[in-house]
Design a protein around this nucleic acid. Structure first.
Lengths: 334, 334
DNA sequence: AAACCAGACTAGAACGTTCTAGTGAAGATG
DNA sequence: CATCTTCACTAGAACGTTCTAGTCTGGTTT
């Protein structure tokens, strides 16, 4: 249990003042190359590491970003991992605070502010804009698009994601495409509106089946779709469905399977999120993939911009992970 | 952007010294009830919150625990959420650091030490014991049992978990129970040994099929089991299987399904982890459930004990989530 | 040769707490 | 009545950095 070396120890070892060691360690101008080298050697020899507490306390700029994430937020951990290099690239550090059933967003935010973060990155914020805007540090809403001019945001371009799905299906020959929406879940409205607009542009009849973010919501939606078939001619029924997210799509698929409807030969299904579930061998769900690296980079840039007074709202285009839940329109279904 | 109030502001407001405010805020003895009330009122009125940086820098005891978790570690987020209340109960605070493909365990640990944590809780440590033991703060290995006397640990009692699974199956009438192991994955050896011991106690023939932690490992194991059936009498074949974890069990189920083997009527299957996957509607996998609250509490207690020089190694008993992948031994299989 | 300048370096204050070592008053003990 | 003890409270140092406001040296300009 030896005490860790401090600036003063390094200064003594190198025969200079503490202030000069600080200058060298931070890499700011004000030291000659010769002493710079000598100081770095002394630091390395003693195994010196700057004390984050003292640094945070004293610096005018802490260069620390606070990240609030949800313990079971889909996609949150992917973003987390991408945030570390993204922040490092702009010279920022990151500290985390989890939100969950037993720990509110407010608590998570307060603990970060107590540590002196310069800005807050909130993944899928649950608080209303007013609460976020009232924080004493700039807030970046990540994964959840916002247009509030008091906030910044970095999120997936939901409209582009839905467009990818719909255009993929059209390319396979599908024209009657339905949408299972996300109910009141975050992003649901944006995705539904994008779907409706795409249908309108094509002169196609939209069919929105009410859904939700969970497996059971998808199951319910599937039963509703199956019930539609009764007494309708086949050429009015959808041949493809874009479901709000992978969880719901999984329930949807399960219910189709139980009813004996074959995927993709009778019905093509697209999910959203490209979660772990979508890639499972027995699922193989075509899904809209959000780009964690791009979103993380945009989020950190938004934070940096906000610290200079500029609020930015970035939409990151998603991509499509094509698997075997979608297939060309079969002759039987025409 | 008003500056946040400090101890000095509260002291001025209440007409006492900074030191006394510190005493009141920390709730330590040394102030009369009357002034205590007055100080708290002043603090509340100003919206005072202690500055974590100054506090960490100055205190002899930071009462801060550093948690290293894996961005895609199964079960890690469940533990995370449980750790907050568990730590609070013992008067500790928690700070997080993520490990991932692009951020090593060492980096995660160093950043926590720079912040002045008193002890490290490492979820599913990847570093060798020697590296962990060499850290300047006590290390608690969480979710990964350890017997190294230089470390502490809090993990699930793997033997008890396997016993739960095996006894559940025996209770259903199964006597020929196979095990798909986890290969080199953490915990695999402990689970396999427990299985073999249980078989020996019952005078039963063990059948260990080599597997691994992933879906594809489970698929491979299933093909191996199916191949065994060729040229063997039915009364020598297993009627139930305990698989290393849920991921592998999922692949295992998928392959059985493809081969037309019915679960649970022809073969009962038990998983391990009770992950989100196991509860999915079309999976409904009986699975050994680790207890996050109990593990988290044990981990924090281990940290507290380690700070007093006592290393503890706690094994937390799991429970069994019974679903429909297991059923009484059918007449056909006898 | 006086005046200026840039660069390298330093002394000491400051950040907001907690800790140490007290002070002063009121009551208890001999 | 002198001496201890306890309690409520305070002054000021300390934690390890960064920041401000310098000083000193040696070279360049007037």
């Amino acid at each position: 249990m030896v005490k860790r070396p401090t600036l003063a120890d390094v200064a003594a070892e190198a025969g200079v003042s503490r202030a000069l060691v600080s200058i060298v360690i931070r890499g700011v101008p004000g030291a000659s190359d010769a002493t710079r080298e000598r100081v770095l050697a002394a630091a390395a020899q003693l195994g010196y590491r700057p004390d984050a507490r003292a640094r945070l306390l004293r610096s005018s700029r802490s260069r620390l970003l606070g990240v609030v994430f949800d313990v079971d937020g889909p996609f949150h951990t992917e973003i987390l991992e991408a945030l570390y290099p993204a922040a490092a690239a702009l010279g920022y550090d990151i500290t985390l605070s989890a939100r969950g059933h037993r720990r509110s967003e407010g608590e998570a935010i307060r603990s970060l502010l107590d540590l002196g973060v310069e800005a807050l990155l909130v993944l899928g914020p649950a608080s209303p804009s007013d609460a976020l805007a009232a924080q004493p540090a700039p807030v970046v809403s990540v994964l959840e698009p916002h247009t509030d001019p008091r906030l910044s945001s970095a999120a997936t371009d939901e409209a582009a994601g839905i467009a990818l799905a719909v255009k993929h299906l059209r390319g396979l020959g599908h024209s009657r495409i339905a949408h299972v929406d996300g109910g009141t879940a975050a992003g649901s409205e944006a995705r539904r509106l994008a779907y409706e607009q795409l249908m309108a542009e094509d002169g196609a009849q939209p069919l929105v089946i009410p859904g939700g973010p969970n497996e059971t919501d998808g199951m319910k939606a599937a039963r509703e779709l199956l019930a539609l078939r009764v007494g309708r001619p086949a050429n009015e029924l959808p041949t493809a469905v874009v479901v709000f997210n992978d969880d719901a799509a999984l329930g949807f698929l399960h219910e189709l399977d139980a009813a004996g409807t074959a995927v993709p030969s009778e019905l093509s299904v697209v999910g959203y999120d490209d979660s772990r579930l979508a890639a499972l061998a027995h699922v193989q769900l075509t899904s809209v993939r959000q780009e964690p690296d791009a979103i993380a980079a945009a989020a950190v840039e938004a934070a940096a911009a906000a610290l200079e007074g500029r609020r930015t709202h970035t939409l990151v285009p998603p991509s499509l992970a094509v698997r075997s839940s979608t297939a060309p329109l079969a002759a039987v279904a025409r």
